[in-house]
Simulated scan of single mutants.
Amino acid sequence: MSRVRPTPEFEHAPTDRPRERLDHVAAGPPTPLKETLERLAEVPDETVLVQFNDRAPQHLYPKLEDRGYQFETVETDEAVVTAIWR
Rank of each mutant, 00 (worst) to 15 (best):
P57L: 13
H12N: 14
R17D: 01
Q58I: 14
P44C: 04
D16C: 07
L22C: 00
T47G: 03
D45I: 08
T31F: 12
T82S: 11
Q51A: 12
D16A: 10
T82Y: 01
L64Q: 05
T15K: 14
P6C: 10
Y61H: 10
R39W: 03
Y69P: 07
E75H: 13
A27R: 05
L64W: 08
L40Q: 00
Q51Y: 01
A26C: 07
E9F: 14
E46H: 12
Y69S: 07
P18H: 02
H59M: 10
T76F: 07
P18N: 03
P29Q: 08
T7Q: 10
T47P: 08
P29M: 09
R3C: 12
M1A: 15
K63H: 09
P6S: 13
R86P: 06
H12I: 11
A41F: 05
P44D: 12
V80E: 14
Q58P: 02
P14R: 00
E38M: 10
R67M: 11
L40E: 00
V81F: 02
L64E: 05
V48S: 05
D45W: 05
P57K: 01
Y61A: 11
R86I: 12
R21I: 04
N53D: 12
V74I: 15
K63M: 10
V81I: 06
R5N: 08
A26N: 14
A56Y: 09
E9P: 04
D23N: 11
E75Y: 13
M1H: 14
S2C: 14
D66L: 12
A83L: 02
F52G: 02
E42H: 06
W85I: 00
R67V: 04
T7W: 06
E65N: 06
R86F: 11
L40A: 03
L40R: 00
V4K: 10
D77I: 07
D45L: 13
T36C: 01
P57Y: 04
G28S: 13
M1D: 14
E35T: 08
L40M: 01
V43M: 01
E75V: 14
G68Y: 00
F52V: 01
D54A: 13
F10D: 02
P44V: 03
T31W: 08
E35H: 12
R55G: 11
R86G: 06
Q51W: 00
R3F: 15
E78V: 11
L37N: 03
P6Y: 06
L37P: 03
P18E: 02
P57D: 06
M1N: 14
P62L: 07
Q58W: 12
P29V: 09
F71H: 13
V81E: 04
K34L: 11
D45S: 13
R5C: 06
H24N: 08
L33S: 06
P30R: 10
D23Y: 04
P14D: 04
T31A: 15
T15I: 12
H59N: 13
F10S: 05
D77R: 11
V25K: 03
L40I: 00
V48Y: 01
A41V: 04
Q70R: 15
V43C: 01
G28P: 07
F52C: 02
D66V: 06
D16Y: 08
E75D: 14
E9I: 13
E42G: 02
Y61R: 08
E72T: 08
T7Y: 03
R39K: 15
Q51H: 07
E65W: 05
A13R: 00
T76C: 09
P18C: 02
E78H: 12
V43Y: 02
K34N: 10
R5P: 03
E65C: 08
P6H: 10
